[in-house]
Design a protein around this nucleic acid. Structure first.
Length: 268
DNA sequence: ATGGTAGCGCTGCTA
C-alpha cells in the first residue's frame, strides 16, 4: 500500500496539479492539508472519477484536511474525540479507515512566534492529539498519521539551525511533543528508510528563492505504528513536484511525501 | 537584505 501526504496550499488553485500527481505517483491513499475549501466545494466527484473515495473536513478560507483512498474509505471522523464542532481543532484533523489502516490527515497549527498565544495553542493542539491517541488508539494496531506537523524533529531537518534561533518548528517544546508521539508507538517512516540522510526537506518558503537555494525544512511526516513500520519498503519526498514548470508559479510551498508498506492489495 | 511570495479576496490575514 502506498500512503502519501501533501499540503497542497489551496486545492482550488492546485487541483490540476494534484490530479497530475495522482496519475504518476499512484498512491493508494493521499492525505491533503490546507485545502482551503468548505465541504460543499470539495471536488469529490472529480476524485471519484479517478477511482478515489474521499472525505473532507473544512470550513472554507483556512486549513481544511482531506483523505483520498482507492482501497476503501470507512468511518470518517473529524476533530478531537468528543469535541464540540471543531472549536479547538479548527478543521485540522480527519481520520478514516482505509484498506485496514487507520489513516489520519493532520495539519498542526503553525505557531507563528515562540511565546505568542498562537504558539501556546500549537502546543495545546499537539497535547490534544497525544491525549486522543493515548486514550482511544492502540499502538499495536495499524495506524498512519500523515500530514504537516509544522515541526522539524532534528537539527538536520532544517537547512541551517543557526538561522532558527528562537524560532518555531525547532523549539524544545515542539520537539518534545513530536517525540511523545513517537513514544506512543509511532515511527517516522522517512527515518526508517533514510536513517542517515541530512538536508532533505519537504517545505521551502516561497520567498527569496529559498527552494532553489535549498533552504528548507522537513516538517511533513508520515508516522506509522510498528506493525506497519516493520513492513515499510520505500519512502520519498517528491521534490520534483515542488518545482514550477517553465516559469510557472510553484505548485505548493510543500512537496508531497509518500511511503510504501508491504500490506494489502497494492503491496509491493 | 528585519527582505522576500503565494492564496484568498478585496483588506489585510495566514503561512
Amino acid at each position: 500500500m502506498r500512503i502519501a501526504t501533501w499540503n497542497v496550499n489551496s486545492l482550488k488553485a492546485r487541483m490540476a496539479k494534484v490530479e497530475e500527481w495522482l496519475s504518476y505517483a499512484a498512491p493508494d491513499v493521499l492525505c491533503m492539508q490546507e485545502t482551503k475549501l468548505a465541504d460543499g466545494a470539495f471536488p469529490a466527484m472529480a476524485f471519484a472519477a479517478l477511482g478515489y473515495e474521499s472525505a473532507h473536513h473544512g470550513n472554507g478560507r483556512w486549513n481544511g484536511v482531506a483523505i483520498l483512498s482507492r482501497v476503501g474509505l470507512e468511518n470518517p471522523r473529524s476533530g478531537f474525540v468528543g469535541e464540540e464542532l471543531g472549536a479547538i481543532e479548527e478543521c485540522r484533523l480527519l481520520t478514516a479507515s482505509c484498506g485496514g489502516v487507520e489513516v489520519t490527515s493532520v495539519y498542526v497549527p503553525n505557531g507563528r512566534e515562540v511565546g505568542s498565544e498562537h504558539y501556546d495553542r500549537k502546543l495545546e493542539w499537539l497535547d490534544h492529539l497525544q491525549q486522543d491517541l493515548v486514550t482511544h488508539c492502540a499502538p499495536e494496531g495499524s495506524m498512519a498519521i500523515c500530514g504537516d506537523f509544522n515541526v522539524a524533529p532534528e537539527d538536520r531537518d532544517v537547512y541551517d539551525i543557526s538561522k532558527f534561533a528562537g524560532a518555531t518548528h525547532v523549539s524544545p517544546e515542539e520537539r518534545e511533543r513530536f517525540k511523545a508521539l513517537q513514544s506512543f508507538g509511532l515511527e517516522d517512516a522517512f527515518r526508517l528508510v533514510y536513517p542517515d540522510a541530512d538536508q532533505l526537506f519537504s517545505w521551502w518558503d516561497y520567498r527569496a528563492g529559498d527552494f532553489h537555494k535549498h533552504r528548507g525544512m522537513r516538517i511533513d511526516h508520515i508516522l506509522v505504528t510498528r506493525p506497519l513500520a516493520s513492513r515499510v519498503t520505500y519512502a520519498l519526498i517528491d521534490r520534483e513536484a515542488r518545482k514550477g514548470m517553465g516559469g510557472e508559479r510553484p505548485p505548493s510551498d510543500h512537496a508531497p511525501m509518500l511511503v510504501d508498506v508491504a500490506i494489502g492489495p497494492a503491496s509491493a
